[in-house]
């Protein structure tokens, strides 16, 4: 069984976890929730193992490199970081409901990587410009940041669903965490994501400087990462200095994640240097 095979199985494991979380929310089944936690854990472990296996396979083919070099590999890593950060949040906040809104994202990332006909899962040799430890640091930190923002996006949706609604004993709404807690969690995730996005942009700049002798070139991907960064700075200041909270922060968090998605996927349709991401 090769790594692509392992990873396509992981796709279905994540799908199962998402279904269990949603079922546990809708049908009030705590057993389903507990099963979901175990399934997502297995999925994350398989995901990590798949990445490790792929690394080993690339060495077997004498083109050994960390599996973070193209769109397929980045999506797989993205799914893993979403699952891991979610597991941490679940433990820390002792709440499984969030899983219903977040684990589908890990599933979607994996499904897109495994099933899209436009994305090749072949292990490719590294082009000379990509042979750099800065690149590994760059991709890892960026995707940890993106994953935290993805979780914040899910939490923002939950916030907007629960906000201002009657939370009586019977409805599904009553099972969702309180808006105050979601608001706090959203903020924590954004701070965490922002730190990693910042380190990601910086390591990318250092890499560009070591490969091409310039740390910033306004190519579309760089520019979009800066746009994303500015959206989140705007959000942080609105919250810290102007006391914005609740709905407006939730909308800004969703806007920020939209910018993340454009930085990640949309930019491949624009002219520029980062084209390796499109293979």
């Amino acid at each position: 069984m090769d790594s692509s095979h392992v990873l396509s199985v992981v796709t279905f494991v994540y799908g199962l976890a998402a279904v269990l979380y949603i079922a546990s929310l809708i049908f009030r089944q705590d057993t389903a929730g507990k099963a979901a936690s175990i399934v997502i854990f297995i999925g994350a472990a398989g995901n990590a193992a798949g990445i490790g296996l792929r690394w080993w396979e690339s060495h077997q083919q004498n083109i050994g490199h960390a599996p973070l070099s193209n769109l397929y590999e980045s999506l797989v890593f993205f799914a893993l970081t979403i699952a891991v950060i979610y597991l941490v949040v679940e433990r820390k906040y002792k709440n499984r409901i969030i899983g219903a809104f977040v684990t589908p994202l890990a599933f979607l990332a994996m499904a897109y990587a495994s099933l899209s006909p436009n994305i090749s899962d072949r292990i490719m040799p590294l082009l000379p410009a990509l042979k750099s430890n800065w690149l590994i640091a760059h991709v890892m930190t960026c995707f940890i940041g993106y994953a935290a923002f993805a979780l914040a996006f899910g939490v923002s949706i939950m916030y907007l669903i629960t906000f201002g609604k009657e939370r009586s004993g019977e409805s599904i709404l009553a099972r969702l965490p309180s808006p105050a807690m979601l608001n706090e969690l959203n903020y924590q995730l954004i701070m965490f994501g922002f730190l990693f996005l910042t380190v990601g942009i910086i390591t990318g700049a250092v890499w560009a400087n070591s490969a091409w002798g310039r740390y910033w070139g306004w190519d579309p991907k760089e520019t979009w990462s800066l746009i994303t960064w500015f959206v989140y700075i705007g959000l942080l200041h609105a919250k810290m200095m102007r006391g914005w909270d609740g709905k407006r922060i939730a909308y800004l968090s969703m806007l920020g994640f939209l910018a993340v998605m454009i930085t990640y996927f949309g930019v491949n349709y624009l002219p520029g240097l980062h084209s390796y991401g499109s293979r």
Partner: peptide, 24 residues
């Protein structure tokens, strides 16, 4: 003013988009 900060941040983010649509 921090209102100015927020205004400037979103203006720079918004106008930067143009440069990614038109090749420079």
């Amino acid at each position: 003013s921090v209102k100015l900060t927020i205004f400037l941040l979103f203006s720079i983010a918004g106008t930067s988009i143009v440069g990614t649509l038109i090749p420079q």
